[in-house]
């Protein structure tokens, strides 16, 4: 497992990396995380990034902007980004505020995300 500021990264096989954000993550400062994270993902030869939302109860506009930024940098780096373990209440609240389709895929859990085409 690799630790970066505000997140844990765990390779789970086949170029798939599980990202678990910690309480230290500040979504208002994406520049502090994006470059080191992109570098680490490249070093790990990541093909797919699974962003675990199990411990994220609310996705507000700030957090959504962070996820969108991360999805953009993943796309440029040739990495698929998949959100996993989103809670029903979080999905519900986010769907009410979203204006466009999200730029990332979503899966119910890590296993489903691993098996996505």
């Amino acid at each position: 497992m690799t630790m970066l500021q505000g997140m844990h990264l765990t390779p789970i096989g086949d170029g798939i990396i599980l990202l678990e954000p910690t309480d230290g993550l500040d979504p208002g400062e994406p520049d502090a995380y994006l470059v080191p994270l992109a570098g680490t993902l490249q070093q790990m030869r990541a093909r797919r990034l699974l962003y675990d939302l199990k411990n994220v109860p609310v996705i507000d506009t700030l957090y959504y902007a962070w996820l969108t930024n991360l999805a953009s940098i993943c796309r440029i780096s040739g990495i698929d980004m998949v959100l996993v373990n989103i809670r029903p209440a979080t999905a519900y609240a986010l769907a009410l505020t979203m204006e466009d389709n999200p730029p990332f895929a979503c899966a119910l859990d890590v296993n489903r995300a691993r098996n996505l085409p």
Binding site: L83, I86, A91, L94, A95, M98, P102, C106, A107, D109
Partner: peptide, 12 residues
């Protein structure tokens, strides 16, 4: 549309 987006966010 909101409903469909929410379904998508749950990975379905």
């Amino acid at each position: 549309i909101q409903m469909i987006r929410a379904v998508g966010l749950m990975g379905a």
